[in-house]
Design a protein around this nucleic acid. Structure first.
Length: 519
RNA sequence: GCCGCGUUGGUCAAUCGGCUAAGACGCCACCCUUUCACGGUGGAAUGACGGGUUCGAUCCCCGUACGCGGUACCA
């Protein structure tokens, strides 16, 4: 549809800054970029926006690729995949930007500014009395009072440049002009150039700012659609103006500004702090914070499968208009549409995310799920002697109660080690010396049993109850409490079969000791 | 302050002028189950406010309020 209008190949880019872990919002932007590209048969470019060396974090770039891999997101062009529009790291494109700023300067659309940070501060101070509130910025109201190539003569400017005086290059905002940014989901967004400041295009270190680099790179990389976060909308007017100033207006990509993901509670954008504060993941994969040294768990470490995260994320700012909520990646690719993207922010609902994961776990083939559980047990360093067949059996029996992979251990810990305490209160009033004798006899029966499988045990218990002339229900609860420590868990005969004869007898014996205090 | 974007239950949301306002998560109750879950059935719970436009506004327009974002030689 859009490709026909523009008559140009579909090329999208995801352009993160390597300044830390990739959080939920970035992940979702990445996912939407991917879905659209897959649907349209286009290309997805991953561009590293590392123009701020001060904020560079080692490892952040590699981490982004790892997230893509875990989520199954295919990148066509990047520092790792290559491509004909490289380099794909902005710091390596430094020389490329030069000719385009020069073009703007020659056209009188940008200018050199020599003001030092101190002079800028002084300017802000001095204008406090004449300008309303704090709308003091480097703009058409103030630029003629500053040290720049607009106020200096050509010779003076040349002298400063020859002397290697530090400078930045600023855009010269037009005096009075309506700038229109066509956003595919929000319609035309208008900006008044009079209220916009003369943004820095090139910094003193010779690297471009974001505003200049995106425009140049999106043009050179032939980007057809820009799907990025809403935090860019206020500066999108400047980007649109630059596309025009550089003479590329007819090649301008289609803009789509995605809503933000907000804190689950309270107000504001979801942040790293919320992850720690609420114990919820916000990264796909664990991220080690370089400054604090803290290791922050991601969705993967919490026990999510990537398909569930993708599905949850995809539906957090889009739906197909039906009541369907569970979509495979292929369905998402097929049904995704720009038109149905939401344009308002929403709170992050971790409960819902877990529900998605639960849904995916229930649908997974037992063998695949068992593999996940085995990995989980390894990372948790849980010692056990279960065979693969037994683990598969356990997965089948317990998956209905698991939302996260880790739940297979957390919910079934009693299958891996003896209960640390016995909830004797659960049996108050239901325990006496007669019951104790009953269980002592049961131990004898178990000791003589030569088949400890689940179905045989079922008959064994029934026969035992018949000979004792009691109902099965009378021994079930005490037996459960002795085996697992409380009123929870899967069926008792399954527990007995899984932990085995020796372990079962030990637990009953221990249980009888613990219960002697209430009898 | 200024600029931009938003505003349907506790949360996520459907509707594209006809509403007795879907559905999901969460919550509650009951059923199933001599445990806990799963499952099943049911329930409570929503259009920020004020003006228009219209036979009719959740839906369109204008204000107000509120929320979010931006306002850097950060992205």
């Amino acid at each position: 549809m859009n490709d026909e209008i523009n008559n140009k190949p579909i090329r999208l880019r995801f352009a993160p800054s390597p300044t830390g872990g990739l959080h939920l919002g970035g992940l979702r932007t990445l996912l939407y970029n991917f879905l659209f590209v897959q649907q349209q048969g286009g290309k997805l470019i991953l561009r590293i926006e590392d123009t701020d060396q001060k904020r560079f974090v080692a490892g952040a770039e590699q981490y982004i690729f790892e997230c893509c891999q875990w989520l199954g997101i295919n990148i066509d062009e990047s520092v790792q995949h290559g491509g004909e529009y490289g380099p794909y790291r902005q710091s390596e494109r430094k020389a490329l930007y030069q000719q385009y700023v020069q073009q703007l300067i020659d056209g009188g659309l940008a200018y050199y500014a020599f003001d030092t940070p101190e002079e800028l501060d002084a300017m802000r101070e001095s204008f406090k009395s004449v300008l309303p509130h704090d709308q003091i910025q480097y703009d058409q109201k103030t630029r003629m009072k500053m040290t720049n190539s607009l106020t200096l003569s050509a010779e003076e400017t040349k002298k400063k440049l020859d002397n290697k005086t530090p400078f930045v290059i600023r855009i010269k905002m037009p005096e009075q002009e309506q700038i229109v940014l066509p956003d595919a989901i929000r319609g035309a967004v208008h900006f008044d150039s009079q209220l916009l400041d003369d943004k820095v295009l090139m910094k003193a270190d010779g690297l471009p700012t974001y505003h200049f680099a995106v425009v140049v790179d999106d043009y050179l990389m032939k980007i057809s659609h820009v799907l990025r976060g809403e935090e860019w909308l206020p500066s999108a007017g400047i980007h649109a103006l630059l596309w025009r100033y550089l003479g590329w207006e007819k090649d301008m990509p289609i803009w789509i500004h995605l809503p933000l993901i907000l804190k689950p509670d309270g107000n504001g954008k979801l942040s790293k702090r919320d992850s720690e504060r609420l114990g919820i993941p916000i990264y796909a994969l664990q991220w080690k914070d370089a400054t604090s040294g803290d290791l922050i768990e991601g969705f993967k470490e919490k026990g999510f499968v990537p398909q569930a995260l993708s599905n949850f994320l995809a539906l957090s700012a889009w739906n197909d208009g039906s009541t369907q909520e569970v979509f495979s990646i292929d369905e998402l690719i097929q049904k995704f549409s720009l038109e149905r993207l939401h344009h308002h922010s929403a709170k992050f609902d971790y409960e819902k995310a877990k529900w998605y994961n639960e849904t995916y776990l229930q649908q997974m083939p037992t063998t695949a799920l068992t593999d996940c559980v085995k990995n989980c047990l390894v990372t948790k360093q849980i010692q056990h002697h279960y065979t693969d067949t037994q683990l598969e059996e356990l997965v089948e029996l317990t998956k209905a109660r698991c939302q996260l992979i880790n739940d297979f251990y957390d919910q079934n810990a009693y299958l891996f080690h003896k209960p640390t305490s016995i909830d004797t209160a659960a049996l108050t009033g239901k325990w006496n010396a007669d019951k104790k004798k009953l269980f002592e006899q049961l131990i004898v029966v178990f000791e003589q049993a030569n088949n400890f499988s689940h179905d045989v045990l079922h008959h064994t218990l029934q026969e035992f109850c018949a000979t004792q002339n009691i109902k099965l229900g009378e021994i079930q609860l005490p037996l459960r409490v002795m085996l697992v420590g409380g009123k929870f868990g899967i069926g008792v005969t399954h527990i007995l079969a899984l932990i085995g004869k020796k372990e079962s007898i030990e637990r009953i014996t221990n249980g009888l000791n613990a219960l002697s205090t209430i009898a």
